[in-house]
Computed example of a mutant assay.
Amino acid sequence: MGRELRVAAYVICTRELSGVIDILLARWVSPHDGTKQWTLPGGGMHHGEDPITTAVREADEETGYTVELVELLGIDSINRRYPRAGGEFADFHGLRIVYEAQLTGGELRNETDGSTDLAAWHPLDRVAQLDRVDLVDIGIGLWRTKPALGRAPEYGPA
């Protein structure tokens, strides 16, 4: 079984319009089966890249917005076992760094030729009804609680 480590950085970006809090999400498309689920804007770090640079770059790539990071919310650590070609399995370890961000420019647009196909604002109180990856609930939980050590505890639906 091959070991894989992936470090990624994501943003929680919210806005309030007419008393409704919206969260910015990107729709991830699985490279394995084409399944589509909402996720936080963000993604994998390039070798030698700083996590802050990664979060800002990925937000722009996936949503069209320029963001400024406000605060480190926390780090989520996951371990999963994935099937690979030829009947092999990968022992996957992911570190997901989550920042709070604010918009500083740009316009909402969809990513082309990337891992997401759609970017949209969603009412925060309706996120639980979306087909989403677990990182959305984890990120919202970190944003709401801001744990002192930045460790993401188990969170239920947003």
Rank of each mutant, 00 (worst) to 15 (best):
E68G: 10
E58S: 04
W38K: 01
E111H: 01
I52Q: 09
A128R: 13
H32A: 15
M1Y: 15
A59C: 12
G44H: 15
E4V: 14
L103D: 08
V20E: 07
D76S: 05
L103A: 13
T116Q: 02
F92E: 14
A148L: 15
G139L: 09
G86A: 14
E58Y: 10
S30M: 10
E111C: 08
R144S: 11
R3W: 13
V20H: 04
L103H: 03
D50M: 06
L69A: 11
P83A: 14
L5N: 11
L40Q: 03
L40Y: 01
T66R: 11
V20R: 02
Q37V: 07
W143G: 00
G64F: 09
L108W: 05
D117E: 12
P153R: 08
V136T: 00
A158M: 05
L5G: 02
S115L: 14
F92L: 14
L17Y: 09
I23W: 10
Q102H: 13
V70Q: 15
W38D: 07
W28P: 00
E111R: 03
E58A: 00
D117S: 03
G74T: 06
P157D: 13
G86I: 10
Y10R: 03
E107N: 14
H46I: 13
G106P: 06
R80C: 06
R15M: 12
F92C: 13
P157Y: 04
D33R: 08
A8L: 00
D76F: 04
W38Y: 03
T145R: 15
R109G: 11
D33L: 11
R132C: 03
A59V: 08
A101E: 07
W38S: 02
I138H: 01
G34A: 12
T63D: 00
W121E: 05
V133W: 09
E71M: 14
D134E: 03
G19C: 07
S18L: 13
I21Q: 11
T145D: 15
A152W: 00
G44C: 10
L5I: 07
G19I: 06
D22C: 04
T116C: 08
H122P: 00
G156F: 10
A59T: 12
Q102N: 14
L135F: 04
A120F: 03
M45C: 15
E68D: 02
H47W: 15
E49A: 12
T63E: 07
T14D: 07
W121M: 00
V70K: 11
L103K: 14
L17M: 10
I23G: 02
A8S: 14
H47T: 13
S30A: 10
T39D: 06
E16S: 12
G64Q: 09
I140P: 01
P31K: 13
G42C: 02
G87P: 11
R6V: 11
D134A: 12
D137S: 09
L118D: 07
R57L: 06
L142K: 04
G139M: 04
D33A: 03
E71S: 08
H122F: 09
E61H: 08
C13I: 13
E111A: 02
G105I: 11
D134I: 05
A128P: 01
L72F: 03
A148P: 12
T54G: 11
L25M: 06
C13Q: 09
T53P: 01
R57E: 05
G139Y: 08
S18P: 02
Y99E: 10
L118W: 07
A119E: 07
C13P: 06
G87F: 12
G2H: 15
W28L: 09
E88R: 15
I75M: 06
R3G: 10
V98W: 01
I23T: 03
